[in-house]
Design a protein around this nucleic acid. Structure first.
Lengths: 206, 206
DNA sequence: GCACTCATCTGAGCGGCGTCAAGATCAGTC
DNA sequence: GACTGATCTTGACGCCGCTCAGATGAGTGC
């Protein structure tokens, strides 16, 4: 093959189309939203024919799974960073805020992350792993801050409640309905903090 | 026109296609799920040509809005019934349980109710009204049970938190992930109660 | 009873979608 | 240098949302 890999017409064989397709999908998702995310559009964006993706993904759903996986990875990273930047009880708040802010900043990706799991008995392994790891981060932080790991049911209930609350807020946060409340509280993040702490799941912010 | 309205071939003019289409959509939704809900399928189910719906709805989204509206109406009714069946603080719990149970029993409809609102600056009036009325029911119940209507911000925060928590739980409840927790607590409804009360939004069940 | 009007419904058709089968292309291997 | 198998293209199928010209017939005024 010629060394002109980055210039001129794309070579017949792409090289790493799997990754290129996922990247193209994320680009489209950010630019046009979830409804514009057709397999054909992704293939166009990646510069290949509409049938090319089928050599890398079983179907459209499998591509979306891969995109969702990237999302869970990214969310995990951001939650991890947020946790590391704080100490003690504040870590739980930081995790919640990081979660909701991720959803706010990547609404389309966040949507795909949950939509890909819908109508599915079990998720692909990679996705499940990344999702679990984010979920366990909450649980671990609770234990590190005094929750009793022996009281399994109670601990898990707390984890579920936190996850549900954050997800609910993440979905609602985009509604204009709450704009005046955000303004009253001095911005979006204070609004998030207030709602989360009101749920009793996270300690009051300083 | 002949009087044979209910038998033989449908008359050229339907009579009340608007309602028939919404009903057909709900039937399809229940039977096949949201992904099977195409305008053409709805028209087929209603026994008309694929173009007929366009004389009653601007586009597919407007049909979905109408379906969503029925959903909010139905949810409002069920919440209202649940509230009337209890007294005092238990009413809040009843509202939350009714909300989550509605989502569990009508997952496809529930999905449409929120999906129809997505990527939309403002919702059609009827939908907004029905949604608001359900939301206000929570707020009113809080006031009736001692919340201070003067503390506007705090009250609204409590309402938002409750709504977010219930929505988050409603979406998560379908995940198999929590099956063992449900079993441990003795069923789905106790699980719902436990999570909601854990959020501190609703009083502990008796 | 009759003609007219106009909302309603049909049929044909457009471009886009997900998917598949057959064939072209080419990197790596023997 | 020929072969193999993975990768990509072309072309096609049926379904989709949506539009438009034309058929239908209920209601209205005469």
């Amino acid at each position: 093959m010629s060394e002109a890999k980055t210039i001129g017409p794309r070579p017949y064989h792409h090289g790493d189309l799997t990754r290129a397709l996922v990247d193209a999908a994320r680009r489209l998702l950010e630019a046009e939203g979830p409804s514009a995310l057709s397999l054909r559009a992704v293939a166009r964006e990646a510069g290949v024919s509409p049938a090319a993706p089928y050599h890398h993904f079983k179907d459209k759903a499998e591509l979306l799974d891969a995109v969702a996986n990237v999302g869970w990875e990214l969310l995990g990273t951001q939650m991890s960073t947020a946790k590391a930047a704080t100490t003690g009880m504040q870590q739980l708040t930081a995790l919640g805020i990081a979660y909701v802010c991720f959803a706010r900043d990547n609404p389309a990706l966040y949507h795909v992350m949950y939509d890909a799991a819908r109508d599915k008995d079990e998720m692909p392994e990679g996705v499940q792993t990344n999702k679990d790891s984010a979920y366990c981060m909450v649980r671990d932080t609770m234990i590190e801050n005094g929750a009793d790991p022996q009281q399994d049911t109670h601990l898990e209930l707390a984890g579920v409640a936190a996850w549900c609350g954050a997800h609910g807020l993440a979905e609602m946060a985009s509604f204009k309905q709450f704009d005046h409340l955000k303004a009253e509280l001095g911005g979006e993040v204070p609004f998030f903090e207030a709602v989360l702490s009101h749920m009793g799941l996270f300690p009051k912010p300083l």
